[in-house]
Write a protein that binds this DNA or RNA. Structure first.
Lengths: 161, 161
DNA sequence: AACTTTGTTTATAAATTACTAAACAAAGTT
DNA sequence: AACTTTGTTTAGTAATTTATAAACAAAGTT
């Protein structure tokens, strides 16, 4: 390996360390965060099972479990090349939108639960519970406007590309 | 306690159970989720230490720890009434915006880390890493537009009120 | 100043999660 | 069909997190 290449490789590992910490704080486990981060900078883009085991220094079982989870939640996808025995994994396009969608789901849950209970806790003449009304207004607003924003972004991509 | 009141109280407890689950998935612990949820529906709005202990059936120590955390992260605030010995806690206004701000912080971190490494991993003639470029574009977009949206919401509140 | 009330800190118990090694399964190769 | 390679499942351990009880501290009341 040339000196330049080694330098690059080291930088990539640094990225993995830093980015995986942030991913962890977003609800990923340690290793799934590392897989996600590595798939942002690795070459080639699609990595085999053993590539991941080797570069991240973790067990085969962890990779098996974490890739399954990441597949389920839609962050990565399998790529099988004809003639190759190994399965490869790569980030889906716009993987970051998945993170957003995850947030959006939670926001919708909060919108719905506040809608439900603000009705159910309404008592005849009694004043409603302001806090629930406000909570509902807020999440109704963001769940309505958020997807639009994302669409705007996606459009701005395809205009350029 | 009248039959109607009991019915209401039961409903409130149901809300606490459901909502605290969602809060947990957003990174709160079990009990801080319960405190948050309860403070959305309790009466009066401001609850003393012992109110919380009683209604949520948890230890004093947990309330002590969780209220400290919730104060730190800005979800609740202390309310001390003159003449009363007990400290009370209430939700801050627009507590939900805090959740958003928390997300926004994470997004800014991802924007910054992608900015940093897309530069550092750039090699002369070599093509950049597309994934990092796209990641940065995305988070630059959302961190720019998100705060605007929230502002729009807040404005819509004050127009009404 | 002894006693209460209110709240914090500490040490421990309980539960959950995360990781791995090793056993297992499936499918390709010789 | 034995052997390899590739990947999954299982079972156990390690580590972390969470909640509590009990000791402690501070401040108000009698």
């Amino acid at each position: 390996m040339k000196a330049v290449e080694e330098e690059i490789y080291k930088k990539k590992k640094e990225f993995v360390e830093e980015a995986s910490l942030i991913f962890e704080e977003q609800g990923h486990s340690r290793i799934s965060g590392q897989v996600l981060a590595w798939l942002h900078v690795c070459e080639p883009e699609a990595q085999s099972f053993s590539d991941l085991v080797e570069h991240l220094n973790v067990s085969k079982a962890s990779i098996s479990n974490m890739t399954r989870l990441l597949l389920q939640s839609g962050f990565i996808e399998k790529v099988r090349k004809p003639g190759e025995r190994q399965t490869c994994f790569k980030l889906v396009d716009h993987a970051w939108c998945k993170v957003m969608e995850r947030h959006l789901e939670k926001m919708k849950q909060l919108r719905d639960i506040s809608a439900k209970y603000k009705e159910e806790l309404k008592v005849e003449d009694d004043t409603d519970i302001d806090r629930l009304n406000e909570m509902h207004d807020f999440y109704a607003f963001v769940t309505e406007h958020f997807p639009e924003s994302i669409e705007t972004y996606k459009k701005s991509c395809s205009d350029e590309g």
